[in-house]
Every structure is written in C-alpha cells, then in structure tokens.
Design a protein around this nucleic acid. Structure first.
Lengths: 218, 218
DNA sequence: ACAAATTTTTAGCTTTGTCTAAATTTATTT
DNA sequence: AAATAAATTTAGACAAAGCTAAAAATTTGT
C-alpha cells in the first residue's frame, strides 16, 4: 500500500463519516487538494484492490477491508499524536502535520509497542478516540460544556465565541485547548459549574460554559 | 527531497566512508539493489541539485551540502534506533528496518525534541556515533576487545569466532551484542580481563577477549 | 599498444500518480 | 421534457524512478 493510497482511504473514511455514505469524486478531490480526474484514476485502483465499492458516476464506499485499513491508519495517526504531545512535549496544535507522516510507517510491532509505551491511551490529544488493533473504538461527541451532565469527562476542543475578551479570559484562567476537563458540580442557582481542569478545580459561569466546546467519548 | 534521493545520498556517504573517495556507479547500484543505469539517472539529478560532484565515467563524491544532508539522515536514523531500543524495548537487531523508514520523516523540531527526550545520546545501539544538529560527530573504531587499553568503554558488536561453543559461552554469561562493556583491569599473568558488562563485573579470558569485537568512540 | 573485458552511459519503455482538455453522464431548472 | 449546468470519466501527457538492451568510454591483460 502506497502513501497515496493510504491518504485516499483515510479521506474517504472521514468524508463518509466512517459509514455507508457514498462519497463523491469531487469531495475527495477537494479534500486531497487534487483534481477529480486524478481521483477517478485512484478510485479504480482502490476498487481493483477491493478497498472500495465503486460504480461509475455513483461515488464510492469503503469495503469492510477498506474500513479496517482506514481504522489502522487512524490508529497510527492518533497514537503518534499522543506520543508527540505526552513524550516529546509538542503542543496540541503542532502535531497533525508530523503525525500525517508518521502514520505511514509500516510496522505492526512498532505501533503495538508504541501503544504499550503510551499506556494504551483511549483518546488522542484532540479528544478523538483511538481504534484498537482490531479496529474497535468508542464514538465521541463534541458539544458545548453546559450541554453535558455532571461527572462528564472530556477534552477542551474549541470555542463558540472567539472574541478577544473570551480568549483572554481562558488564558488568564489557564484553560487551554487540549486540556482535560471534568464537570464536578452544577450550581442550580445560577447554572454555574464547578469543573476540574488538569488537576485544578475552578468555578465557571454559565456564560463561559455555553461558549466552550468539549469532546467526550461515549 | 524524495525518499529515494535521501537513500542514494546515504549510500554514497557510506560507500565513500564519509570522505573524498570517488564512489563508482556499480558500487552504488549494488548497495541500492538497483541497476547501474538507474544510478546514472539519479546521479544526474543529485548533481543538478549540487549534492554530488559528478564527471561522466568518474564516479561521484558528495559535495559539502551533500555531506551535511547525509549526516542529517544518519542522525535521524540513529536517534530513532536509540528510541526503539531504549523506549520501546526493541532488541538490538530489529531496529534497522523500522529506522530506515523513520529516518525520512521531515521535521527538524521532531528530531530535536526526540534528541532531548533521549537525553542527547552520543551513540546508537550499535555503538555508532550520532552526528549533532550541525553535523559534528565523533569517529568510532571496531576492534577486538583485547586490542584496547584499560578503561576503554564500548559496545559489543560482533564475534570473530562464531562457533556454537563460543556463542553458547556468551549466552551463558549473558554477554549479548549491543551490551555496553568497560575494561576495568588487565591481568598481567594470563592476559585475562576484568570487565563491566551492563552493571555486572566479570572476568574474561584472553581467549574470549580476542574473539569479541567492540566498538569504541574516539 | 591494442584487443578484450569491464564499467558507465544513453535510448527507449514501464509504472505511479498527477494534470488538462474533451467527452459523457447525471442533476437541475424552467 | 428539453435545455442547461454540474459532476464524472476518458484520453493523452508529464515527471519520477525504475528497467532492458545497446552504445561508448575506460581499464586490463598480454
């Protein structure tokens, strides 16, 4: 399997949201920053290898074999991301590009030893789940903090309000994207929250909680 | 720079022993497991990029730029080897193939952070020196254990006598390739040695010492 | 020194993954 | 239900990296 083939499989997986949807040639071309004609060529090759179902003009779907291939690549990508952040001290937003390269390294042994070295993590630094060797993984959802019940544990992944004052507030309170966050209490009176962020407990107003996206594995 | 270009540069470096020697087309072809005609094509490309000096029929030499490129690839290769052995618990002889892939990952930041994570090692698990960011490194020599003076510290890299009894002896005494070895004392009387192998002190007869290769950085 | 052997290069072809331009199929709109 | 628009595929080309076979240069052997 070439790097390019792997990239296409991954793109199709993501565009099809992991499922049965027919993914259009144009959508793949856009994602891969290439031309639709190139996509058609590659689709034919993947189809020959039984990685995608393909009928002319009808878009593609991953076969079961294609789906497992995609999950194996995603597993590698996310494990490397964990490594980069946890062991090499990369920040949350720097890891993607490097992981895009590392995900293509071919060695079952390597990836399983890496998994062990990292303590078999369940999610990557963006809160996305890491498939197991067998391609099993837990789904995750991203919603605003105030939409989750008490005791929810997730990862801070984005903001709804991206104004300077709000970002400044987050910075002042040392709330950063990638931080692990747990909802400890909900205050009935003003709908404020007591949360634990990376070992620190702080109060957060409903105003704040309704502008902070967190990703939670189900 | 493509993977293939990097592989050629590395091959030329090794065949030229890092230095001024003219490396023949045939030698490169053999090393790269390819045909001389393919080598000629690649040489022309590398020459255009000023990575090698090339005159038809005269073989090639790395330019200074080519030499630094080679050292940068070797640095990556050897750092990844240290990582695989020290952190992921790979054995001495399993790492080469994987490191061949990892050495092509493009990220200055990654390799420098990896270097730091590993504690800035000076040699890889085979006892070969790791070039610095700037391409500076210490030379190493491989000789029989009995040829080195007292206090020499090196890495066990091979045997002269590869007969079953000798290998069995090494195994029984837990002396393995890749082990760090220090010469503590030389016994005048019978030319035996007191050595430290991986925290253990043991006596070794001259017979043994003259059949064990160790690699030492100068 | 010159023929034979070896090495190296050239020429032309193949595959992979890409592109442009043209043709074809499907979707949309009136 | 045409006609037009959009999406997709085909055809033909190109660059990278390899190959084979043939030509050219160099080296070797006598």
């Amino acid at each position: 399997m070439t790097f390019s083939e792997e990239d296409y499989i991954k793109a199709i997986y993501h565009l099809g949201k992991g499922a049965q949807k027919n993914v259009s040639t144009n959508a793949i071309a856009k994602q891969m920053m290439t031309k639709p004609s190139s996509v058609t060529d590659m689709i034919k090759k993947l189809s020959e290898k039984d990685l995608v179902h393909y009928k002319k003009y009808q878009g593609v779907t991953l076969t079961e074999s294609g789906r497992l291939t995609a999950l194996s690549i995603i597993r590698k990508h996310r494990l490397w991301e964990v490594f980069l952040v946890e062991k090499l001290d990369f920040s949350w937003d720097e890891v993607h590009e490097v992981a895009e390269q590392l995900e293509h390294i071919k060695s079952e042994k390597l990836i399983n030893k890496l998994d062990k070295h990292l303590g078999f993590p369940k999610v990557d630094p963006h809160g996305d789940p890491i498939p197991s060797k067998e391609g099993v993984f837990i789904e995750s959802t991203k919603k605003l903090l105030n939409e989750f019940p008490i005791n929810t544990k997730g990862i801070c992944v984005g903001v709804k309000d991206s104004s300077a004052p709000f970002l400044k507030f987050l910075d002042k309170n040392k709330i950063a994207l990638g931080n692990t966050i747990t909802i400890l209490e909900k205050e009935e009176f003003d709908n404020s929250f007591l949360v634990k962020i990376e070992e620190r407990e702080i109060y957060i107003s409903n105003e704040i909680a309704s502008n902070l996206y967190i990703k939670v594995t189900l």
